[in-house]
Amino acid sequence: MMDFLKHPWPWYVAGPLIGLVVPALLLMGNKALGISSSLRHICAACLPANISFFKYDWKKESWNLFFVAGIIIGGFIATQYLSGNHAVDINPKTTALLRQQGVNDFSGLLPHDIFSFQQLLTLRGFIFVVLGGFMVGFGTRYAGGCTSGHAIMGISTLQWPSVVATCCFMAGGFIMTWFILPYLIHL
């Protein structure tokens, strides 16, 4: 059992477990899965600045902040106690392509040669860490949800606006990966 837990989990184990979060939250207290909302609640709690979008009772939504705090703790537990410490077993074609584009560190979950405090002051590090994060926060709120709220919760409940949003997430990702990212990695 421990041996299984320590290996990376296959998609057919992980996917259904993620899917079960949808009914779990509904049954626990009518909560709709959605993680990007937590970013809005943090704004409302810390810096509402009289902006109407942040003037609401965020405390009523505090379950969402507990949920994301749980994700942080879960990340810690998985990495500290359930990790086999191996490199991510990605398609060798992806590795070859990324190497050619200028990624050199394949030892962890993220390439350390891009995502590190030392890289933060380079243009490349700034784009990947700061600009990328900004686009994720701005885009998800503008879209009204992220992968969890739209792709999983929204499509599970058969809402076509979520299908549209999910297609746009994927389209944006393809455009970035195929046409822009090679130049950004090269910086």
């Binding site: 885009g139 944006g172 970035m176």
Partner: peptide
């Protein structure tokens, strides 16, 4: 849903993470 979705998608491919994974 469309404009924000595209912006998020572009950012997702850069950071390699949507909001849930950022916390993890």
């Amino acid at each position: 849903n469309v404009y924000g979705g595209l912006i998020f998608g572009l950012g997702w491919a850069i950071t390699g993470a949507c909001p849930g994974p950022l916390f993890a």
